[in-house]
């Protein structure tokens, strides 16, 4: 095996687990995860000559994986994309208070609640728009900085921050709803069940 191949494999090995997780979650159809992994690694290998030694390989390879995810999802004939939600009925004050109360109850022990809602985390992720999902995954799994995410997705910093903020808000709301539905939170400030 050549030195170049050894170097590439060693760099990939260091990001193996997060890259596998990214490929698992970045596709809209679960069956496409392995296709994405193969496309991302193959493209990274073909373009390895462009990688500048000493720079951030993790950001470089996640950028390629994010671009390949777009291609794989475009080719896929899976479920329709989640779209921006139309403005619905604004929650009234009582609903807002209950949601905030439930959220604060979730925050009292977030590790336990999320551990019991692992399936719902994936469901919540599936409700994000493509940009929200990409930005969240690159931040949460790829551990990329805002600038690196913007670079990966050809997106200005302001958009990165906007998508990430919306993605986090939606994830928190969906997990709070799921926690309430599962009875993990739900004591309202008014004392009703």
């Amino acid at each position: 095996m050549s030195d170049l191949c050894d170097e590439f494999r060693a760099l990939c090995e260091a990001v193996r687990r997060p890259l596998l997780a990214f490929c698992r979650h970045a596709v809209w159809r679960a069956d496409d995860a392995e296709d994405l992994l193969q496309s991302a690694l193959l493209t990274a290998w073909r373009r390895f000559g462009e990688f500048r030694p000493g720079t951030n390989f993790r950001a470089w390879v996640f950028r390629i994986a994010a671009l390949e995810a777009r291609n794989v999802n475009r080719r896929s004939r899976g479920a329709p994309l989640p779209e921006e939600e139309p403005p619905g009925r604004a929650p009234d004050v009582v609903e807002m208070l209950e949601r905030e109360w439930d959220y604060e109850a979730l925050l009292a022990d977030p590790e336990t609640v999320v551990a019991r809602l692992s399936g719902e985390v994936r469901v919540a992720l599936g409700t994000l728009t493509p940009n929200e999902r990409s930005v969240l995954l690159l931040r949460a799994i790829g551990d990329l900085a805002y600038r690196e995410i913007g670079d990966a997705l050809s997106m200005p910093l302001g958009s990165v921050m906007g998508f990430l903020s919306r993605a986090r808000r939606k994830m928190r709301e969906r997990l709070t709803e799921a926690a309430r539905a599962r009875g993990l939170v739900g004591e309202s400030p008014r004392g009703s069940p």
């Binding site: 997060p18 596998l20 979650h25 977030p110 590790e111 692992s118 985390v121 949460a140 928190r172």
Partner: peptide
């Protein structure tokens, strides 16, 4: 502190390779 722990828990759940 709590939101930091929540984000870490979500990231942990998403970081499972499957």
């Amino acid at each position: 502190d709590a939101e930091g722990r929540l984000e870490a828990a979500i990231a942990g759940a998403l970081s499972e390779p499957g």
